[in-house]
Nucleic acid binder design. Structure first.
Length: 379
DNA sequence: CCAACCGGGGTCTGCCATAGTA
DNA sequence: TACTATGGCAGACCCCGGTTGG
């Protein structure tokens, strides 16, 4: 599959020189007009450079929200040489409707400084990972900045090659580009730094295969490459200090749910840990039990304290012991509403949590309902 | 057959700061 | 000096079902 990608990238290289043929003619005309209308007003003194009225007009015609664009990137509206028509036509050709185009430019005005060639080239590179134009449109619609923030297509290609070299499959790349498209606009250097950080961590923890360690963290957490190395470092240090895990415990944590927890904002995580620890200790858990709880159930770092606390209340009210929860923390993954419903239904059939434990709560809807039906028949 | 264990899956930007550049 | 490119930040779960061992 890497070979396929490389072949497609090669094709793009080859057609680079041919691309200018597909310039829309409108674009050149607009640029020329623009120079005539606003070249007289750029005095370097206190008077700010005025906005380009022709450009404003063009954007209005396209349905762009000028106020929003001005708020986000005011400089773009003063530019003389822009390509709004070309960009709009480009996006429409790829299947975007008028509203989508307008929304994209409103939210990321700098898009109109990109040339048709740059965009087409970038598109082809994205297309080597996506299966259809419509997939790309939906990503751009969600996050215009990811596509337009950089025009360095060489960097984009290098990123893809680099990610492939880590052993990520085309499915992995697809997932990352869909859910965390900004990853591909990072400089290659930045992505490399993060990979190095993770790899060094794997080595430090004595993982026999640090490359697989890195790959696993990235596939478990598509967002990891969007985070700063500073944040990841802080969080790793925090895990170390708060949980004092053994190497193998740490590896297990990071290769499982912990991978997702790595990119939490450090303060949030610390606050959460503190609040939840206090709550559990008030309920009679030892510090060791609390640590084990977080190791067994890293999403606790992620959960909002209020929601988690709510769920605990919910269990306590139904005479479920906190120690039962410690044994089965996964039941916290269900929403409070769902837990409440389930507990009510179980109480209705006289289910005894003391006797049977709480594992029944940790089951899929289908399984739970089947079980409940059985209990009903018995009762 | 069933409970328990365990891994997987979906989903994820918009803004600000600043070094570098023309 | 204005503008661009890029780094960085805050925000904060829920659910399903395959497999396995008794």
């Amino acid at each position: 599959m890497a070979a396929r990608l490389v072949a497609q990238i090669m094709q793009i290289y080859l057609c680079r020189t041919k691309v200018p043929n597909c310039f829309p003619s409108a674009q050149l005309k607009i640029s020329y007009l623009r120079l005539c209308t606003s070249s007289h007003s750029s005095s370097p003194g206190t008077i700010p450079k005025p906005e380009n009225t022709v450009l404003l007009n063009n954007l209005t015609v396209l349905g762009v929200d000028i106020m929003m664009a001005r708020k986000r990137q005011p400089g773009v509206l003063r530019k003389v040489d822009t390509n709004e028509e070309g960009v709009a036509e480009f996006l429409r050709n790829k299947g975007a409707n008028r509203e989508t185009v307008a929304s994209i430019i409103s939210r990321y005005p700098r898009a109109i400084t990109r040339s048709f060639c740059q965009l087409e080239e970038r598109w082809q590179i994205w297309r080597s990972i996506f299966n259809a134009d419509s997939e790309i449109i939906s990503v751009i619609e969600r996050s215009p900045e990811s596509y337009f923030r950089s025009s360095d297509n060489g960097n984009l290609e290098k990123n893809i090659t680099f990610l492939c070299s880590l052993g990520l499959t085309s499915k992995d790349l697809h997932r990352i580009l869909t859910t965390a498209p900004r990853t591909f606009s990072n400089s290659l250097e930045l992505n490399k730094q993060m990979v190095k950080l993770l790899r060094d961590l794997g080595v430090r923890l004595g993982d026999k295969n640090p490359d697989a360690f890195v790959k696993r963290i990235i596939t478990k957490n598509a967002y990891i490459l969007l985070r700063s190395t500073k944040r990841i470092k802080t969080n790793v240090d925090f895990f170390t200090e708060a949980l004092k895990p053994s190497n193998s415990e740490f590896i297990k944590l990071l290769q499982g749910h912990g991978a997702e927890v790595l990119d939490l904002s450090s303060d949030y995580m610390k606050r959460n840990f503190k609040n939840i620890s206090e709550r559990l200790q008030l309920l009679g858990c030892s510090i060791e039990e609390v640590k084990k709880f977080f190791l067994d159930y890293p999403p606790a770092f992620y959960a909002s304290f209020e929601k988690l606390s709510n769920k605990i209340d919910c269990l306590l009210e139904s005479d479920i012991n906190i120690k039962q929860l410690l044994k089965k923390p996964r039941i916290l993954e269900f929403s409070a509403k769902n837990l409440k419903n389930r507990i009510e239904e179980l109480e209705r059939v006289g289910y005894d949590f003391k006797k049977h434990g709480v594992t029944i709560l940790d089951s899929s809807r289908r399984r739970f309902e089947a079980k409940l039906e059985k209990l009903n028949e018995e009762g």
